[in-house]
């Protein structure tokens, strides 16, 4: 699936999007898997309470299932307006 990052999450990880092959069942599982892979993910995802999630472009949460999902985005709380 495609995993997208925005704002300081994007900067810490060092790329805006990537293709990830995973069998993770939930967003939380995916995040844990990425944190195991490399230090930059561990640094970016250290505090999950500071992060928000969208699944297929809909706001969701870390417990969301990844079954059939094409796109996951992880980012800080939004600051529009």
């Amino acid at each position: 699936m495609d995993v997208l990052y925005f704002a300081w999450v994007r900067e810490r990880i060092g790329l805006p999007r990537e293709r990830v092959e995973t069998t993770a069942a939930t967003v939380a599982d995916l995040v844990a898997e990425l944190m195991q892979r490399e230090e930059r993910y561990a640094a970016a995802f250290a505090d999950l309470s500071a992060l928000r999630v969208a699944v297929d472009q809909e706001l969701s949460d870390f417990s969301a299932s990844l079954e059939g999902v094409r796109e996951v985005a992880i980012f800080p709380p939004m600051t529009g307006g």
């Binding site: 704002a7 706001l59 980012f75 800080p76 709380p77 939004m78 600051t79 529009g80 307006g81």
Partner: peptide, 20 residues
């Protein structure tokens, strides 16, 4: 403000920081 996916970054002479 908090449900549309926008993020603001301030660029000043002293550097850049994301608006919390």
């Amino acid at each position: 403000k908090s449900r549309a996916p926008f993020w603001k970054k301030e660029i000043t002479r002293g550097g850049a920081s994301w608006v919390a």
